[in-house]
Nucleic acid binder design. Structure first.
Lengths: 210, 210
DNA sequence: GTCTATACAGTGATAGAC
DNA sequence: GTCTATCACTGTATAGAC
């Protein structure tokens, strides 16, 4: 055995060791959850010693919280439907459903959702963090869009918030739970497109102004 | 079954220690998940020694699998909508949505769902067990009911399977995820009733035969 | 701050007496 | 089958050198 220190291959970011610990912890936790990952494994993946990990994060729980919070905000922060045309109702609704499905069915989002749900008893606050970054944001965006649609007179939407919840529930369908349970493989573009069209069609029938 | 009047010393465990281990493990796993529960804690809760636990279950994993399988089937086996009238569409759909919500939002079902999702990476087969006992069963029941409704001409349902999925997705809404994330307290009868009525009303607008 | 080495508690699982 | 006592191992967290 050589005494030379092993340098991790993809440590190209000059953001310091704290960042590399955080990145390594992200990958480990997403892959295996909280309980199955040891601080040794995280330190090894980050290319630092365990003492260095503890120099930046007080405990495994604190590190987990930091990882989940950052991941939630980074993952769902980009969802926006501001640019869609409220007069092309069916096309825009189909696009919203498709973007929503691609977001929540992405491997990273599914893995994040799994570990939060699984550890919610131990980390109750993470539920609120995740909700604010994810479902709350997508719902608010959709609600605002439906408000613009109603203003344009293209649909009859007496309660935009309820309608947005129902639209997203329809889009989520049973696919989301099937992915959480590992019953379906990776996302298929055709399947997502079909689900998005079914969602928009059913929603339109229920809320058409005629 | 003997006719002799032989009174056991303790009425607490009429079904033997294997059953009491299973019952204790159910409570422990539901309360804290897989990783946070030790075999010592289960043995203590069952009132037996750890060696007795291992005399009946080969490993912690095997015990966990037995618990989850039994719980899934016991919990969701009773869901049936055979007795509902397909001509009283709105009332029957509201009842289905209400029963469905009461089932999936019950504390036991939520806790079961949590630990399965959280440990699905370690126990992939449990996803199939849970799906067959829960979502698959409720969907098949609802689909059969919608088939009878379409036969009676009360609704236009070209694809009963898709319609059943959409109906249950609408019923699940965002409440289910909020409960999984511990964001809502125990179920409120008025809230469930309201959600069930909204579900039935929206579904009826989308699938009315007129 | 970062490393090596280690303290200390807790875990799953088993041996042997009864 | 059931118990008590114990094993081998892994985990988190820390002490002390540099």
């Amino acid at each position: 055995m050589s005494a030379t220190a092993r340098v991790p291959a993809h440590d190209e970011m000059p953001a310091g060791k704290a960042e590399s610990v955080l990145a390594a912890a992200e990958q480990c936790f997403l892959a295996s959850g909280f309980g199955a990952v040891s601080m040794d494994a995280i330190a090894r993946a980050a290319g630092v010693s365990k003492a260095t990990v503890y120099a930046h994060f007080a405990s495994k729980e604190a590190l987990f919280g930091a990882v989940v919070t950052r991941l939630s905000e980074r993952r769902f922060g980009g969802f926006s439907v501001d640019a869609l045309d409220p007069r092309a109702v069916e096309a825009s609704l189909t696009t919203i459903a498709q973007r929503f499905l691609e977001l929540i069915l992405s491997p990273e989002a599914i893995a994040l959702n799994r570990i939060i749900i699984g550890e919610i008893t131990r980390f109750p606050v993470l539920g609120e963090v995740f909700w604010a970054a994810g479902p709350e944001r997508t719902r608010a965006q959709t609600e605002a869009f439906l408000g613009r649609v109603a203003e344009a007179g293209a649909l009859a939407v007496p309660d935009a918030r309820l309608a947005a919840e129902q639209f997203l529930a329809l889009a989520r369908g049973e696919i989301h739970l099937r992915h959480l349970l590992r019953l379906d493989g990776d996302i298929d573009a055709a399947t997502v497109g079909g689900a998005a069209r079914h969602t928009a069609a059913t929603f339109l029938r229920a809320f058409s102004s005629g």
